[in-house]
Nucleic acid binder design. Structure first.
Lengths: 238, 238, 238, 238
DNA sequence: TATGAATGAGGTTTCATTCAT
DNA sequence: CATGAATGAAACCTCATTCAT
């Protein structure tokens, strides 16, 4: 099924498949310590930002000595990767948009957006941090890009499908539109929900309406411009 | 005249009116040195980012001793403010969208977006930096917010006007829509133009179409009670 | 027992009970390093004065890296507090004036003064430094004051006691007299013993005589001028 | 006339005869600028201490450029010398203790002390500063010593004279006693009057009584072998 | 593994002093 | 003489990283 608007991902990062920090902890205690460090790192990053944080703070937060940090990670970048990886699990299942029984594209889009924004809210600060780091560290930039690509692909497919069914503006480039619209959603998520505390229902409504309008989405029954009415040329958006 | 999409501003920062660094140096040489430092700071910030930059580098770039820096600024934050202030001048007059002779709202929107994106391109890295710093320093966060507010107000007014003229979807909240749409534009600017090197014409077209669609914009002649001419169905965006 | 003239304290600082640097280092090595730093700091302070000293010099003197200093102290002020605290121990037991077998107040005063001056000599430079710092840093000013208060209280009590026993000039305000006389002693300590190298016996004699005279001290057997012999008017002090 | 207790001097610095900064200002304007700098320096020194002060502050206080400072002085030490020199004039004539018509030594001593303490109050902070600097800069140490010497000499002479007249304890070494007693007075001046705000009358009384007691001073009529004994019976001021 | 003291390179900041205007 | 910008040596302080225990 195609999901329009970042259904199960946060931001443009659909899959935090990272390879860097997959050192499976050897011992049981080791695993616990490592986990504590990852949790602590997230806390500290969210509090102080990535660049503002110090390794000392992370180990302190994890209740261990600063030296211990280096048993599991080679530096801040690596914990960050681990933190993102951990967050991914949380973000992959944000109540998947089981738009049961509905075919109405608007409902599907709304559900997707809701799922996306819900997950976003839980991980907003982390996203902000990823953004920051990406603009500094090419590795994270790449990470961000690769994931955004997957994500946009999916939304793009959904748009294309709607176009094929005659439900969306056929003049739009599906991939470009997908990028622009999901960009809009993630921006709105940060600006309105995080900074301005707008409630999620309002936000879902807003972005869904704009998204639907932007695609000139028709109701399914209007689909496939019936040949006979072709003369009328009525391809009314929305 | 109301300008729809951040016509003459970059990002959400319509007016970099800053007060912090208004210490006009008394002498001419002083002014020159200060200017050199501001220029150098911009260069260094764009190269290394705000947090990655060192004051030493800035003074080196400005060909002066490190101590000289402190004659004019109390720290990196203050130069950044000065840099943004200087950039503002550049951004305030990016070939104002004198959409001469056209009343067509799409043309107006397109022109605005072009102006905006053009300026954005010139200051993209700086915007990225402001974003970074805002997420770290509350002062810049505030700066960003206050300016975004002004900016959104303007776009909001334009949308409301179109609604009043019966040209735009009346169900939209003008302010919210303005925020979402200009968010989209600045996101696209960064993602597509800066990271993916999409050319400006394509980008302008993309965002303009989406913007226009999102508002369900009608051509002026369709305005208001289109009752009688409904059959004609002239739907020309742009 | 009340001790007249700063018996077991140096200057007006009876108890260097400081709270600022009570961070007992956890490990043994840590304790050693900290102690080395305190010792080094004292050496450097006595050599260069407080303001003339550099943290680098202290760590160098303690044979450790400059960063190590900050593991234990937040700055020069804090080491100084630690140095004073350490000195206190030395000063608290300078051969307490166990004027065994004597009740003669003059002997008691002499012994006290000797104890005081002996300790003073050992810590003279430090006292000078405390004086300096106190005139600059309100925290040390306060420290000095609070301790002087305790000290003066004790001398004051001794004087009052002598007055009650009819051995000292009853017209004197005990606290004021205590302040003035111990001020005299510490001044003389610095001026004569430190700057002019007068030997301690001479100095003890000098200040004891002046102190005794100033109180118009009588020998115990003269106590409470018996009314009947009033006419004889025998007034021989000490 | 012999003055017992630092009659017209402040602290132990009877004569600020300094040679270092006697560069008579050439121009009239020059003289004014120099004077402004000296005044400013005193203000700044009293506010921030000698070591805490910066040349910049002094020129700022004197409303001139920092470079100007070097036209008149080679550094802080030199202005300090100038400041002390200027203060000397103020201190040399503090209402000289013309104890007209009295021969009573106590009156003389009281008057001297009053004169001394009055002047002290006016220059207390400056004295504190001189003390500080003396403990750092040998030149000022020397200055202080040489002046103290003259001062002590005078008090010493007065004591000797009283001894010769049979009015003071003949066992005291006049010079040593002078040093100790004037040390007491200057200490009390700082501690009580400056720090504790004790009023001058009380202070004069206190130190005068102690001074008189310490010398075992007799009234003139009791002088020497009082064999015939005026009959009137010596009135001892306790 | 865990610890936390020690390290020291690296950046920041201050200010006395010079010098061209 | 006055100015005040420029200088740069010198001190401060931080923190990632190592390593002996």
């Amino acid at each position: 099924m195609s999901k329009p608007s970042g259904t199960d991902q946060v931001d443009d990062h659909p899959a935090f498949v990272d390879a860097s920090s997959l050192k499976e902890p050897p011992t049981a205690k080791g695993a616990r310590t490592r986990a504590a460090l990852v949790t602590a790192a997230r806390t500290v990053f969210e509090r102080d930002g990535f660049l503002g944080s110090r390794i000392t703070d992370i180990s302190a937060e994890a209740d261990c000595a600063s030296g211990t940090f280096y048993t599991y990670f080679s530096g801040k970048e690596e914990v960050l990767a681990a933190v993102l990886e951990a967050a991914q699990d949380d973000m992959l299942h944000p109540g998947l948009p089981h738009v049961n029984g509905t075919d109405d594209p608007r409902e599907v889009i709304a559900a997707s957006n809701r799922a996306y924004l819900t997950a976003y809210l839980r991980n907003a600060r982390l996203m902000e941090i990823l953004y920051q780091v990406a603009s500094i560290d090419p590795a994270f930039q790449e990470l961000r890009r690769r994931r955004a690509a997957k994500f946009n692909e999916r939304n793009s497919r959904h748009i294309a499908e709607l176009q094929e069914r005659g439900l969306a503006d056929p003049t739009l480039d599906p991939l470009m539109a997908a990028k622009a619209l999901s960009g809009m959603v993630s921006r709105v998520a940060m600006e309105l929900m995080v900074y301005e505390d707008v409630d999620i229902d309002t936000t879902v409504d807003l972005v869904t309406t704009l998204w639907v309008n932007a695609l000139k989405l028709k109701a399914p029954e209007e689909a496939r411009p019936p040949s006979k009415r072709a003369g009328r040329g009525g391809r009314r958006r929305s």
